[in-house]
């Protein structure tokens, strides 16, 4: 990284400064990045490594329901599952968070009670982000006051793609301020940014603006999390940590349905940023159906035979 190495996040006072900082970033060669991700995807996790990785992945899940048809009943089921993914086995860890729309935060908070499972809310007019800043901030504040531990915001992709990078930065700063001590995940919606160069720049804008996590996707567009995109984002958090001393987490979301996929992400973490990110504090999977596959593979490892999907609740 060509940025100056220091122990603090460089101050960004205007768009010119921001552009200068981003200008120092190296480009990403798409062929090379995809080849690297594909090579890491061939790693083979066996036996105790696999068991530990499956449990780690379960603990990293943000169990998510983000549908227009969500109801308190649906959220109750989700939160129950989040606390006890496999009620028949107390050795199964709880997931990291339950992720819901802002209007259901209070209900989720109520169901989760004193559980260590966090409540995450998607705010800022998720998923499109097409609203005024005031509306977005109100969305965030309401979610925070309803008891959200974590806010998943979306960046303004329109602003990013039309070159208004300062606006993207300022919005993240404003949302961070509205969050107060609430943990902020910034969704880049990489499927709409399209290029890896854009993903790297957007990652840096979010981190410079104070993101606690950078997140790939809303899960609501055609292209969601991919392994090479996650690789590029992990390289960004690695370089940001080296440059500023600030450790930012990564969340991958959308389309991750199998344990096999999830383990591949853990390998990429392991070999790109290392052990500090192999923790729910630093890495999350935004997913719904993934959890059951993790549970199935976990049971398969223990029983030695493939198990039925009906072993686990459909919640």
């Amino acid at each position: 990284m060509q940025l100056p190495s220091g122990s603090t996040v460089p101050a960004v006072e205007n768009e010119t400064q921001l552009r200068a900082l981003l200008g120092g970033l190296s480009g990403v060669d798409a062929v090379g990045a995809e080849a690297r991700a594909a090579k890491l995807a061939t790693r083979s996790l066996k036996k105790s490594t696999k068991l530990a990785a499956l449990d780690l992945a379960i603990s990293m899940v943000d169990l998510t329901t983000l549908e227009g048809a969500d109801t308190p009943g649906r959220v109750t089921s989700l939160c129950t599952k989040a606390m006890h993914p496999d009620p028949s086995d107390s050795g199964v860890p709880h997931v990291a968070a339950a992720c819901v729309y802002p209007d259901l935060v209070a209900h989720a908070r109520h169901v989760l009670g004193a559980s260590p499972v966090k409540v995450a809310a998607v705010a800022t007019s998720f998923p499109s982000g097409r609203a005024s800043l005031n509306v977005k901030l109100l969305d965030v504040r309401e979610a925070v006051s309803a008891g959200a531990d974590e806010i998943d915001m979306v960046i303004d992709r329109g602003a990013f793609l039309s070159g208004r990078l300062g606006q993207v930065f300022d919005e993240v700063v404003a949302v961070k301020e509205a969050c107060g001590s609430t943990h902020l995940k910034v969704i880049l919606e990489t499927g709409e940014l399209v290029t890896y160069d854009n993903v790297r720049r957007a990652s840096w804008i979010a981190m410079l603006a104070g993101a606690d996590f950078i997140k790939t996707s809303t899960g609501k567009v055609g292209v969601n999390a991919t392994l090479p995109t996650a690789l590029v984002m992990l390289e960004a958090v690695r370089d940001f940590a080296e440059t500023t001393g600030v450790v930012v987490g990564v969340k991958v979301a959308g389309g991750i349905r199998s344990a096999k996929d999830a383990l591949r992400y853990l390998v990429v973490i392991n070999e790109t940023v290392g052990s500090a990110w192999l923790s729910p504090d630093r890495f999350r999977f935004g997913a719904s159906s993934l959890l059951n596959d993790l549970l199935m593979q976990r049971l398969k490892q223990r029983r030695g035979v493939y198990v039925r999907p009906d072993e686990f609740s459909g919640d």
Binding site: L45, A241, V273
Partner: peptide, 19 residues
């Protein structure tokens, strides 16, 4: 540099043999 970062080890997750 934070302790967390310096303590982070690349490849710290050991892979069991997969022969």
């Amino acid at each position: 540099m934070s302790d967390e970062l310096t303590n982070s080890q690349l490849g710290a997750m050991a892979y069991d043999p997969a022969p």
